[in-house]
Design a protein around this nucleic acid. Structure first.
Length: 588
DNA sequence: GCCGTTTTCGGCCCGACTGTTTTCAGTCG
């Protein structure tokens, strides 16, 4: 999948380069293809191997032109067109454009006028007040850019889990094929499913450590090696993230896994328990003097320390899990296979890439009982948001597809839904009569992110009070490492959710992960029900549920807290606007 | 550069908001 990311990046930068030149339409096409390839579940190299350029063209958004660029890259490692254009603008396009408020046009004349190539060049120029002289740039924009840069820095060089996990998994699969590797595990913050990841930690069991460390330091993804010994290598990968690999004998694997999984706070507490018993715990084992008490599995170690239950990695944060494990009172967390449906799905009716039927077929393959189609509505103009008429047409279309699926003995039900926009005053951009006909109505904020805390909170609560609104989608609006959540009083929102029986969404899209764990925990404790949705805009994105489940697990959620663990009938009953006729109709 | 129940050519990329400006360029969703 490494190639996918590289190709996606080139296509993205190519899109920006054309945008810088003011070429119409082309950039959007390139960007679309870039996004699709980035989230593709299959390796482009494999697709190409299977059927060449023709097969590549089956990827949505990829036509002859882009397929040929991909071919060129796979064969030669270069894309000429890209490199020629890059000569004119030898700048860090991806880095600069990731700063809020900086777009392609800015990047173009920042380079032309001030020779700005990197984010740090930009920061220096902005601090020196050099931007304000440029056309259409003033003090405010300068300040905005500095704020954007500061926010990016706050990320502390951490990467979103959605960027890192696929890379870690593909590396794991490859490394496991090195002769001599008995077992390989990913530890660290990835194993704990933290929202952002600082580096990758691979643990390997092998009797021939040096073969493994040598092989690892030479894989093509490695940019440079910081340090390398017989059992440990530390490298910087080309994607910019650091990775450590440690080789161990089988007998100390559990201790190492426990140690390298963390979190630091959790480990400190666990070690205290060992000390209390006169023992010591480190990455090699739980020991009393020279005698090893436990080391091969995590389970033994926790058990010897008085914990009959092993705290799942997701909750190892020293937030009560150790006490609960000691008392055998850990909750039975929601499992990764517990969800029966996905309730936020966009299709080609608006800004999604696949048709209703394509999304539904994938849902069947995933074994779901139901999905809700929730395309954008009117006021989100860029997506071709639906008005009442379009929604009516879509409802009719869904009925047709449901009938077809039923004939084929499918167990899947497609629910009619929408992702409606909450307007400034809390009203919705679709009339109530139409909303009442939908099975699932999600409401969301897509504009005016900078309202005051009071206004924003009141606006959302007003929407929750509409009896047709079942769910609030991505309730805080954040994009990880990119956009802060809007100001909103979550305590009030949670109270209102309880009062109005509105469901809160855990948006599983790895860019969003919204609600975040603390808010999920608050909602759970208040008895507010939640759903976990992918916010998928394409078939591969439907696989994102696991990120949301991890998010819920980190907040100690059980099956009962998440209503899309319920079978269809019960699920519909759990919705606010439950209406007997709707259910009968849907099931028939 | 992509795409097709309006099309194999001619559409697609719309509207709000911001910050810069005296009429609009650039960004974002």
């Amino acid at each position: 999948m490494v190639k996918n990311a590289e190709i996606a990046k080139i296509l993205y930068e190519l899109a920006m380069l054309y945008e810088m030149k003011g070429v119409p339409f082309k950039p959007r096409a390139l960007e679309r293809a870039s996004e699709t390839i980035d989230s593709l579940a299959r390796d482009v190299a494999d697709i190409y191997k299977k059927g060449g350029v023709k097969e590549l063209q089956k990827i949505p958004g990829v036509g002859l032109g882009i397929a040929e660029k991909i071919e060129e890259y796979l064969k030669s490692g270069h894309v000429k067109e890209y490199e020629n254009m890059k000569k004119k603008f030898p700048v860090d396009i991806a880095g600069l454009s990731s700063i809020e408020g900086v777009g392609p046009k800015h990047i173009a004349f920042l380079y032309e006028k001030l020779k700005i190539k990197t984010v740090s060049d930009l920061e220096r120029a902005a601090k020196a007040g050099k931007l304000r002289g440029l056309p259409r740039m003033g003090e405010k924009l300068e300040a905005k850019i500095l704020k954007g840069i500061a926010f990016k820095h706050e990320g502390g060089g951490r990467f979103g889990i959605g960027e890192v996990l696929p890379l870690a998994r593909s590396l794991k699969a490859r490394l496991s094929k090195i002769p001599g590797v008995e077992t390989i595990e990913i530890a660290g913050s990835i194993r704990r499913w933290q929202e952002t990841i600082g580096d990758l930690d691979f643990l390997v069991i092998s009797e021939s450590p040096e073969i493994i460390t040598n092989a690892f330091s030479k894989i093509p993804e490695v940019d440079h090696v910081y340090a390398k010994g017989p059992t440990k290598v530390m490298v910087r990968l080309k994607t910019g993230i650091d990775a450590d690999l440690i080789v161990l004998p089988k007998k100390s694997f559990g201790a190492a896994l426990q140690y390298f999984t963390g979190s630091k706070d959790h480990n400190v507490e666990v070690r205290k328990l060992a000390v209390k018993k006169g023992w010591s715990l480190n990455e090699h084992g739980l020991t009393k003097g020279k005698k090893v008490i436990a080391s091969e599995t995590e389970k033994e170690i926790y058990k010897k320390l008085g914990m009959p239950q092993v705290p799942p990695p997701e909750i190892r944060l020293n937030k009560g899990e150790i006490e609960a494990a000691l008392a055998s009172k850990l909750p039975h967390l929601i499992e990764y296979g517990d969800l029966k449906g996905d309730l936020q799905i966009q299709t080609s009716w608006t800004d999604g890439k696949n048709s209703i039927e394509e999304m539904a077929r994938e849902a069947e393959r995933l074994g779901y009982e139901y999905i809700a189609i929730t395309d954008h509505t009117r006021s989100l103009a860029m997506t071709g948001g639906a008005d009442e008429k379009k929604l009516e047409r879509q409802m009719a279309e869904i009925e047709k597809i449901n009938a077809k699926f039923k004939k084929q003995n499918s167990k899947l039900t497609i629910l009619k839904g929408a992702e409606v926009n909450i307007m400034k005053n809390g009203s919705l951009d679709i009339d109530d009569k139409t909303l009442a006909k939908l099975d699932v109505v999600g409401a969301a904020v897509h504009s005016l992110f900078n309202l005051s805390r009071e206004e924003q909170t009141a606006r959302i609560i007003k929407a929750m009070e509409n009896p047709n609104v079942d769910i609030i989608f991505h309730p805080t609006g954040r994009i990880i490492n990119k956009r802060k959540p809007y100001e909103v009083d979550m305590e009030k929102i949670i109270k209102a959710a309880k009062r109005t029986k509105t469901i809160l969404e855990i948006d599983a899209h790895p860019w969003r992960l919204d609600l975040k764990d603390e808010h999920i925990r608050m909602a759970r404790e208040a008895g507010v029900k939640m759903v976990i949705d992918t916010d998928a805009h394409s078939v591969p994105e439907m696989h994102y549920l696991e990120y949301g489940i991890a998010q819920a697990r980190r907040a100690w959620c059980e099956k009962k807290d998440i209503i899309n663990t319920l079978p269809l009938k019960e699920f519909l009953k759990a919705l606010k606007q439950f209406d007997f006729l709707t259910v009968v109709y849907t099931i028939l």
